[in-house]
Write a protein that binds this DNA or RNA. Structure first.
Lengths: 183, 183
DNA sequence: CATATCTTTCAGCAATCGTTGAAACAAGGG
DNA sequence: CCCTTGTTTCAACGATTGCTGAAAGATATG
């Protein structure tokens, strides 16, 4: 009991064009996720699972991606927290297997609907706080300060409006596509 | 000739509630941009300019943000390359002044329309390349390999479709809001 | 052309982030 | 209960990124 592929299912070809294809796709998704402020490995791991016809074990995924089990474990935790990967337990099997969420749009929108939503909410709070402080200067003895306060209050109000607008747009998008079939 | 505020216009209050408000808003925007894979200082610099009733000099911006002129210069280069900041030259003035793009939506969409567009195009190319390689294995002597190739080819095709769909959605969004007034 | 003022570039340091390998932890099976 | 197998956590290290200060590059002025 040592080879990477064992009992349960005949493993794919150890090194081949298919592996290269997997690697390319995985790196492409990884790069996309990095651009969007996520971790590269989240994209790579998800992709390898997505391109597998059956749930993979940790060892298999590590081997295909050339990463340590520690990193894989942490990355899987991230992915599960976004609902991008599910853990599958085969009845008589000891080790767990991991399976990619295949409904891509739904997954992406769920992330937008929570991560971006949270960030935007926080931004709104910050803008509103800043707006409060700016308004406090509307009654400053110095007229120049009052004028500056007016201007900043107006711009801060616009920032609040924009952030609120983005939240609204986000809600529309997520709700619109929430009630659909297929991913 | 040394104080941060000089001739041209009476400078705002050196330290005040308004400055705190600016700082809060700047940090909030910075955090948002980081989340989206940009540099924090891009958000901070843009915000300070956006909240100023007149274009600021480099020295003023550095002072408000507590960053070096070197960093400011690099950040301004980034911002200009995205069209988020304009350089303004006052007639008899030696030093330049910087002014924020105030049409926020337009600005955001221009960025999405180029940065994300480029990244997605690259992803599409990678997926298509991977798909080619997978298809090469469709004629493998080993039936198991052929089956694996079929599965991967199908999934890769979906990835291509999704990426293309995203590009399309992006184009719709940008074109839809490109022909609008206000930012 | 020399000088003064402002901007950009960049080598080097600082801080952050990513990754491994090993230890701790969990969950059966003898 | 111990041993085996599998998973998670985490300290330490390495790579990447961010920032500064100083030097080089511009540009106007005398």
């Amino acid at each position: 009991m040592s080879g990477p592929g064992n009992a349960a299912a005949p493993l794919g070809p150890p090194t081949s064009a298919l592996r290269r294809a997997e690697g390319r796709a995985a790196d492409a998704v990884g790069a996309l996720l990095v651009l969007w402020g996520f971790k590269r490995q989240m994209g790579r791991v998800w992709t390898v699972l997505y391109l597998s016809e059956r749930p993979l074990t940790a060892a298999e995924a590590c081997e295909r991606l050339s990463i340590s089990t520690g990193l894989l474990s942490m990355t899987l935790a991230d992915l599960r927290s976004w609902g991008a990967v599910r853990t599958v337990t085969v009845p008589g099997e000891r080790r767990e297997r991991y399976q990619a969420e295949v409904q891509v749009w739904r997954m992406v929108l769920r992330v937008l609907g929570s991560r971006e939503r949270g960030a935007l909410d926080e931004a709104v709070r910050a803008f509103e706080g800043a707006l409060e402080e700016a308004r406090a200067s509307l009654v400053d003895p110095d007229p120049a300060v009052r004028a500056a306060a007016r201007f900043r209050a107006e711009r801060l109000a616009r920032l609040v409006a924009h952030a609120r607008g983005a939240v609204g747009l986000l809600r529309i998008l997520t709700e619109a596509i929430a009630g659909r079939r297929r991913g």
